[in-house]
């Protein structure tokens, strides 16, 4: 296997409105030429050492990059797909040397596990599930949750991996009888799982028993809200939502993210904090990621915006670089880095 290496970053931190907050660390150029769709960061064990690696996904190739030094990356493995393109990378926390991907055209048709042979010399892929899959999320303790089918035939399934990625166990959660669009774990309540549904409800499951505990309506102000993060504190659920369908024309600017609080006992909820763009900036939420108390979003304008959820305001804006709009953004799970991607395959790694 001939090693493919990235170029060292030679660009300044560009004309971000808060240039001190984002420092460009390195840049990966995916040479495959096909459209870039996602990025993720995870630890991978290489020659007995756990390395903080980057996974990139193009339409038909997923690649694992290992760090050579702080500024360069070497491609270690590539998994190829011939029939169905990749839609998203699905990292599974607490599993070593395994990552999942969702494949499909507009909707997910397959979920596959990507791993390598025990001698580390060959890439392997295993089909985990197929069908009309609506949502998937990797959970702590080596679990993967997915929902498939619609209404009465909907199945919500938890798959548990062994430490080496093998021996999968399956368990089903009770269906809420409305299509589940997204999942989120609940910080502070590891046995709870949240889902958002097509009817603007948030549902809560007990992951141990599979029970559906509650269905909570969160209002019709914003359709198709996506739940990114949930915290359980003092008997309440704090939920970070994004609003891809919010109108841009609201007088105070439409919220890109919003923090709401729900009392799970009564299902009553109130908005705590809207996270809007600074004045003069326009755009709707296109794609984003929340980690700890930081939220990052790619906007329809092609700019990336970052909010400190505790401070309550936008802390950094990253306009398109080299006239290329941003198309996806992820927080690195392994350090305090932001991974920003463009459709042409360029991935920029920023320290935040």
């Amino acid at each position: 296997q001939s090693p493919e290496q990235t170029e060292a970053a030679d660009l300044p931190a560009c004309n971000s409105l808060n240039p001190g907050r984002l420092q460009l660390v390195s840049k990966l150029k995916n040479p495959s030429g096909s459209c870039s769709v996602d990025v993720s960061a995870m630890c991978w064990e290489i020659a007995g050492f756990k390395e903080p690696c980057i996974i990139t996904a193009c339409e038909y190739i997923v690649s694992l990059w290992k760090p050579l030094d702080t500024r360069q990356w070497e491609k270690l493995y590539s998994w190829h797909f011939t029939e169905v393109p990749v839609l998203q990378i699905v990292p599974v926390p607490d599993v070593c040397n395994l990552v999942c991907v969702a494949l499909g055209n507009l909707e997910i048709r397959e979920i596959r596990a990507l791993l390598c042979s025990s001698d580390g010399k060959r890439e392997k892929q295993v089909l985990l599930s197929s069908g009309n899959i609506k949502a998937v999320l990797g959970l702590t303790e080596r679990r993967l949750v997915s929902s498939s089918g619609t209404l009465c035939d909907q199945q919500v399934e938890i798959m548990t991996f062994a430490e080496d990625g093998g021996n999968k166990e399956k368990q089903f959660l009770m269906s809420p009888e409305e299509t589940v669009l997204t999942f989120a774990e609940v910080q502070g309540r590891q046995e709870a799982l949240l889902g958002t549904t097509i009817m603007n409800n948030i549902v809560i499951w007990n992951l141990k028993t599979g029970q559906l505990l509650k269905k909570m309506h969160i209002g019709d102000s914003y359709q198709a809200s996506v739940c990114h993060k949930a915290y359980s504190e003092m008997g309440l659920l704090f939920v970070v939502l994004s609003h891809p369908c919010a109108k841009e024309s609201e007088p105070l600017g439409s919220p890109v993210f919003q923090l709401i609080v729900i009392n799970p006992k009564t299902t009553l909820s109130v908005g705590v904090m809207p996270y809007c763009l600074p004045q003069g900036q326009a755009g709707r939420f296109l794609e984003g990621d929340v980690k700890d108390h930081f939220a990052a979003a790619v906007l329809t304008s092609g700019t990336i915006a970052i909010w400190d959820l505790l401070l309550g305001h936008c802390t950094a804006l990253l306009p398109p670089v080299s006239d290329q709009h941003w198309s996806f953004v992820k927080w690195s799970g392994t350090d305090s880095h932001l991974l920003a991607g463009q459709k042409d395959g360029n991935i920029f790694v920023y320290r935040y």
Binding site: R189, N206, Q211, L212, L213, I262, L268, V270
Partner: peptide, 23 residues
């Protein structure tokens, strides 16, 4: 946020809802 907006709050909501929900 207060109980006027959200109703009575229980610190054991998860356990209580698990007892109330169908198995």
């Amino acid at each position: 946020c207060n109980e006027a907006d959200l109703g009575p709050i229980s610190l054991n909501w998860f356990e209580e809802l698990s007892l109330e929900a169908p198995p």
